[in-house]
Amino acid sequence: MTLKHNILAGLAALMLAGPAASDDFERAAIVMPGSISDNGWNQAGFEGLTQAGEALGFETTFSESVHQPEQIEVLSDYARRGYDLVIGHGGEFQDAVERVASRFPETMFMVNNGLGTKENVANADFYFSQIAYLMGYIAGSMTQSDTIGIIAAQKFKFTTDTVAGYEAGAKAANPDVSVLVTWTGDWDDIAKGKEAALNQISQGADVVWPTMDSATLGAMQAVQEKGVYGIGIYRDAINEWPEILQSAILDVRGNMRSYLERAAASELDGELYRATMSNELAMRIGSFHPDIPVEVVDEVAKLIDAMKSGALVVEPQ
């Protein structure tokens, strides 16, 4: 038993003496929970890294649809292969990244939408409450029925922050508004997304904000069929859906670009890189729907200025 143990340890040592890490930033990898063609979170992460790599001149690679049991294996493998930066795309990677990071002190790790930092674990997220507040404000101003809706998949910190910000913004614009919240339990079940939106609409909602991944497509389909307003997420969605009042552009690509530029200059530290309304590259609003009156547009601009100056603080839950 001990002999075997020794052989294994020896083998381990042999394997560890892999390629020596050079000082320059050369290679980055991203590990994603879903598919790179989901039109949402995962696609944004994939494109964010790939485009930054092309522009800034470093090599990139990715693993998609990495589920819970494989996270540690995949993250360690990239670190072992000598990648300078390994990105876990989503809060579900936080725990695995911390574990792997302690074994590979030479490698820098990043968690998109994670929580907490370490020496070699950085964290990039969005000030969801801010942008959700703005969306809520617009929805609250535009509703005729005093009922608006938001659809989310799973309940955890960032989604509850978003829902709370949306409610707060809507109430600020229209104290009588009631906000319908639906949890579908599934980020990608398109049929369910549509059903949830149809339900909110029949319940009287005339503005619906779907915040899932692929399932958003189904919800927007319902919005279009029923002739109500929608709100976009991640990108300026009015280009695809003319019913969109405004989009919460959580520009994962832009946010990643901000920190990847630092990484390429070897200046990425184990810190929190939070995208706020002050960082337009990472978080901003999109185009206004032509139906939105000028007063509302002006009011939103004022709110954004107040957020930038710190006069308006939307507290996360």
Binding site: Q94, L115, Q154, K155, F156, K157
Partner: peptide, 17 residues
């Protein structure tokens, strides 16, 4: 899913665990 998002949720977790 309910247990890890509700009674068992670790404080400040960015994901249900």
């Amino acid at each position: 899913s309910y247990a890890v998002a509700g009674p068992l949720l670790a404080e400040g977790a960015p994901y249900p665990y």
